[in-house]
Amino acid sequence: MKLRTWGLLIILVAIVLACGGGDDEEPIPPLDPELGKSYFFLQQGKYREYNVYEIRYYAVDISDTFTYQLREEVGEPFSSGGQVSHIMNRYVRDDDTQPWELDSVWSARIEGDKAISVENNIPFVKMTFPADISRTWDRNLLNSREAQVTSMLNFDSNFTVGLNTFLETAEIEISNDEDGITFRDIRREVYRDSIGLIYKFYDQVKLCSRQECLGQQIVESGRLYREELYAHGKIDEED
């Protein structure tokens, strides 16, 4: 009996040692909580300039097409409700032969694990940190609109805008929803480390669902908007 007992004990020890063989591997470290914050770039004096293409649809076969340039400047910080935000001055012009004219003033901040942009007095959660493609969040968490599940499609990857390929980008998918019959809602934004937003694409339209045009992808109302970065830098370093 003693020999049998010792034999069973030896077998049990061997099983335990075999099961614990993977304990020598280094555990996966947690993500740095600051990861991704430099993509939502809020350095005072930074500017970004974009080429904008926009179509506004009013009815079937009735629309306006606009091409213009947009400039965004990160202004001085200010404190409100215990949070530090930056003024975002936004200018527009038809093309580079025209002077910039002030169009609107937004604000932006990083609050804890959220990047927040206040656009025409409506706050949106643009990103959450640490950046992780497995995470989702509600873009409309801080406003009264219907919840909008948002996710990060890619992080620290390449993205091409026009003739330029940017490294270290984060691609955000706001919506990728369409039924092919009544509506289309496709929205994405791309941010580059130490630059900020480099690309925005919004295609939010209602499709004609009357019998004569049902299923033909004919736009009845809505907007298509594309914004592409073409220049960026520091205001005090401009020629």
Score class of each variant (00 low, 15 high):
Q69G: 09
E73C: 08
E72A: 13
V105Q: 14
Y47T: 07
R71P: 02
D113T: 06
S79M: 12
G112I: 00
I62H: 11
E76F: 11
S80V: 06
S107A: 13
Y58A: 06
S134F: 08
G45M: 03
F78E: 00
V60H: 06
E73F: 04
R56W: 10
E54Y: 03
S85C: 11
D103W: 10
G45E: 04
G112V: 03
E111A: 15
N121P: 09
K126M: 14
E76W: 12
E49D: 11
D96H: 12
E49R: 14
T136M: 09
V92Q: 10
Y58N: 13
V74S: 03
V125D: 05
M127P: 05
I62S: 08
S104N: 15
N140D: 01
N143L: 07
F78Y: 14
S104A: 11
M88P: 03
E72F: 07
I133W: 09
E73D: 14
V74T: 01
P77N: 05
F78N: 02
Q69V: 07
V84N: 04
I133M: 03
E73T: 10
V125W: 00
E72D: 09
R48T: 11
D61V: 05
T65C: 07
Q83Y: 14
A59Y: 13
G82H: 02
I110P: 04
R139S: 15
Q98G: 00
N89I: 06
P99Q: 09
Q43Y: 03
I110A: 02
D94C: 07
F66E: 08
I110W: 02
S80N: 09
F129E: 02
T97N: 13
S79P: 01
G75F: 01
T136Q: 08
S85G: 11
R56S: 06
P99G: 02
T67G: 12
Q83L: 13
E76K: 14
G82Q: 03
D103K: 13
V74L: 00
F129N: 02
Q98V: 09
I62C: 00
